[in-house]
Design a protein around this nucleic acid. Sequence first.
DNA 1: AATTCCCGGGATAAATTCTATCCCGCCATG
DNA 2: CATGGCGGGATAGAATTTATCCCGGGAATT
Lengths: 343, 343
Amino acid sequence: MPTLIDLQKLLCPDLLKAMQRRYRILHTIQLLEPIGRRSLAEQIALKERIVRTELDFLTQQGLLSVSTKGVSLTPSGKEVLSELTPYIEEVNGFRVLEEQIKQTLKLDHVIITPGDSDSQDWVKLDLGRRASEFLRTQLKSNQTIAVTGGTTMATVAEMIQPLPNVANCLFVPARGGLGERVENQANTICAEMAKKIKSNYRLLYVPDPLSEETYHSIIHEPGVKDVLQIIRQADIVMHGIGDALTMAKRRKTSDHVLAKLSSGNAVSEAFGYYFDRLGQVVYKVRTVGMQLEELSKIKTVIAIAGGESKAAAIASYFRQGKSNVLITDEGAAKALIKGFPFR
Amino acid sequence: MPTLIDLQKLLCPDLLKAMQRRYRILHTIQLLEPIGRRSLAEQIALKERIVRTELDFLTQQGLLSVSTKGVSLTPSGKEVLSELTPYIEEVNGFRVLEEQIKQTLKLDHVIITPGDSDSQDWVKLDLGRRASEFLRTQLKSNQTIAVTGGTTMATVAEMIQPLPNVANCLFVPARGGLGERVENQANTICAEMAKKIKSNYRLLYVPDPLSEETYHSIIHEPGVKDVLQIIRQADIVMHGIGDALTMAKRRKTSDHVLAKLSSGNAVSEAFGYYFDRLGQVVYKVRTVGMQLEELSKIKTVIAIAGGESKAAAIASYFRQGKSNVLITDEGAAKALIKGFPFR
DNA sequence: AATTCCCGGGATAAATTCTATCCCGCCATG
DNA sequence: CATGGCGGGATAGAATTTATCCCGGGAATT
């Protein structure tokens, strides 16, 4: 028994595309509001005259309000967007994709957002928003959440909203500081998330990576030892998946290690582990924090990564990865299913 | 919780309009196939170039097949049309209209078809089709069906299809012959319906109307007496509702009777009864056959009438009418609800 | 066999809509 | 005060839609 969408795909496919386009416009406005026509046009790769036509129409329908600062969603615009989301996902065939990936990678949950983070910034924001919404469904009072750093995790912190029914949680960084911008460091993200949902946090002031000598010395520091203990007892972990060489360079890895990663055909990186296409660990940097083996004991491990170019890294990580939830975008999902690079 | 249609009405009303137009095209083709572009354009009041564009698209989508005789629905075209019907009715708000009329006229069932029979012939055909489909849901083996004459009833006979699960039914004319074309007479319609569903029929060879003297004589004729007995025991009655003066003229009513109908402000006619706007009987012609009072004893009495111009007659009849099912069209339904002429 | 009617496919011209691009004044921010 | 981003205004060219008509083929009717 076909749904209305199945019938409309056959009877007026062009107009479904129009619906998708308007949804995308509203959705992007929701993430970036208030935003002007030209910026929006740039974000969603449409000419400004076309965006204007659509904005005029949506405003006329009462879904947008216009000011000199830009356009924003009205309350009914927000409601329409929210109610429409499942239908748009049905149009996009996301349910099918989610199920395929779920079974292929043997996961408990897969969530796919529209777009491709490689092309549009708002897609990564949306990943963050969906990840925080998923966290909301899982989180209970008095729980401990360990989070990693990275740009995608930064969007989770940016998009997370207060959780009224949850109290007295504890956020900890899953690993030490990174050689990157402070706002993408686990400590910063951890603190921001904790503040936003009015919970506590502990920070980890250790370099990452570090020498064996320093490692053996630093793990006995009381301030470090305590946090490590908390990290190991986390109920939920949220982490990104990185492209191996990109992450290595970002972390100012030495030339000889870079050479090793290259010769080992490293594809992905998570928690200091570098994996090749088959999921084999080709390098491990010494870190203070959550270790890959420890993930097996944790009930909810959420991986967040998107972009078509990340598909290989995602597939590589999940060959051995212990995460049981993936939040990704349409670009990555389709590339995963295309069989590149796995199977 | 809004449906997808509610959301699409707001976000892309053009999509719904296009869907409605394509539905109407497919629907009209189903009723009149095979039909050419120019005829179809005329039927649905669109320019032939526009119809061509739509036909090209629908053919490309596999819903139509094209021959030198005209276009027809493909099997999947028929299926799509069938599956889409409830959605189109939701778009058109027919459910709401049906419910309103059901409650206003205190009926068991109301069925509304798209269009207005005043404007397009295919709408009357569709009334006939829907009426025969409804009959199919009600009819059981060994039942008796009494039918009247008229152009609308003729379309029921034209559109009815064999009923595999029903046997040994008996069709009888609800009243005697009319002063009109033979194909619209109750006898003809009765015979045609019976033949189409492989059942039996009895005919009634009596003039209608007739004098008191002839009446008292003819009702004792064995051939008439038997059929009258069967008519009174009918399980189902299907009848039309006529505009009073139109019917009177069609039946070659005398001038003095016409004057009486006019002075009595007759609005509708059924079973030889002429009703004014308030449902009062202003005139009764003597007929051999089903009488108005006898309808109360019959379980299923189906009235079939459409066209905006018929709304007054429908309302007038139902002020006192004993029918419990109405099958009408959108034009009549909307006029009924507009409060003209009742309430 | 001839004629008529309706068919699909072909075609042109005019009207309408869409699209690309740029400009102006206003407002907020640094 | 300068700068950046905003909405609203505007024109020109491109694309699509719309209106209308014609031709040859096939089927039905006379």
